[in-house]
Simulated assay, not measured.
Amino acid sequence: MSMEQGPARASAREIAGGQFRYYDFVMAAFVAILLLSNVIGAGKVAQIWLPLWNVYWPFGAGILFFPLSYVIGDVLTEVYGYARARRVIWAGTAAVLFMAFMSWVVVMLPPAPDWTNQAAYETIFGQVPRIVLASVCAFWAGEFVNSYVMARMKIWTGGRHLWSRTIGSTVVGQGVDSLIFYPLAFLGAVGWTNALVFKVLVTQWVLKVSWEVLLTPVTYLVVNWLKRREGVDVYDDGTDFTPFRTRV
């Protein structure tokens, strides 16, 4: 199929085991953003000025980039199908677990006597087990829900209205992510009231969905470019949607 004719519609079963030119690059981008947003962004609380309310609003800096993993997840499912997105989600989950283990080992290593940065290192890379568990569970569940909704909606809409799938899947996926992470990480913790947990949960969910809406034009450009370059448009007709496998 020539690129001038556009991508050919294909069932996910028809391309099982097939090779794609850019799939590995998209996977690498997904895992890189996931890890970097957890390492660089998660430890800092920033604030933004809201002139209409004349207040500074605090937020976790990681929210600026972590939602990009959901955008790439949408691209993966839309272009390559649920099975290949599932493989990437498992790769991301394994990477996050290894990152948490590596951080714990490195922080626990006794510092050399003339190295004076241990306290700062622990502040940045020391991870509370409860928050790590909450983060991994929320990411895993949220990403799979996001991909499942995206794939199902593509079949229901016949491939039309991409914006409805990207936004709709993010509303549900990020909702599941937030509903798992914030109660599991902070409910009952010192300094966290039930009302505060709920407030932060809703605020972060709204911000993440808003990012998805703002990035919709970018998603369109990336999806259309990849479909033309790969030459196929994958639909998950008859796909086994279990999350508990990695084979494509």
Rank of each mutant, 00 (worst) to 15 (best):
R165H: 01
I155V: 15
V190M: 05
P7R: 04
A10G: 02
Y148H: 01
L109K: 04
G191C: 04
W53E: 12
A42Q: 15
Q47N: 09
R21A: 04
G175A: 09
L196V: 03
E78F: 03
F98G: 06
A16L: 07
Y148D: 00
I180Q: 09
I131N: 07
Q174I: 05
Q118P: 02
W104Q: 06
R247T: 08
N117M: 07
T123M: 08
M99C: 10
M108Y: 03
V105A: 03
G173S: 13
G175H: 03
A8L: 08
A134I: 04
V222K: 00
L214I: 14
G6Q: 09
I167Y: 13
P111L: 09
F244Y: 04
F181Y: 15
A10P: 01
T166Q: 05
E4R: 09
V232T: 12
Y121G: 01
A151L: 10
G158H: 12
H161I: 07
T166Y: 05
V213F: 14
P67V: 07
A141Y: 00
K154A: 01
N54Q: 14
V75K: 05
Y56A: 10
Y70G: 11
R229M: 14
K227R: 14
M150W: 00
V45R: 08
L76D: 04
V213Q: 10
A189G: 11
T239K: 02
V213L: 15
V176S: 02
T203S: 14
A120H: 06
F30V: 12
G62K: 01
A46P: 02
Y23I: 10
A138D: 06
N146P: 13
A185Q: 06
S11C: 09
G158I: 08
A189L: 05
F139R: 03
A83R: 01
M150F: 05
A8Y: 08
S2V: 09
W115P: 06
V88M: 13
F59V: 08
Y235F: 15
A100D: 06
A42D: 13
S103T: 08
Y22A: 14
R13G: 01
M150V: 03
S37A: 07
I124M: 10
V213R: 10
M3V: 13
L184I: 12
M108A: 10
S169P: 11
V71M: 13
S11G: 11
V55R: 13
I48H: 08
Q127S: 08
T219S: 15
W53D: 13
R245C: 10
A46C: 04
P111T: 02
T239E: 14
G73R: 12
W104K: 04
F101C: 09
M108V: 02
G43M: 04
Y23W: 06
N146W: 09
D236Y: 07
T77S: 13
L133I: 12
E122W: 00
V105I: 13
Q47M: 07
P7H: 08
L109W: 13
L50C: 06
P243H: 01
M153W: 12
D24W: 12
M108P: 02
W192P: 02
D177G: 04
M108T: 10
F139Q: 11
R228W: 04
G188F: 02
I131K: 12
A61C: 10
V71N: 06
T123A: 08
L201P: 03
V88I: 01
V209L: 06
R84T: 09
V234Q: 00
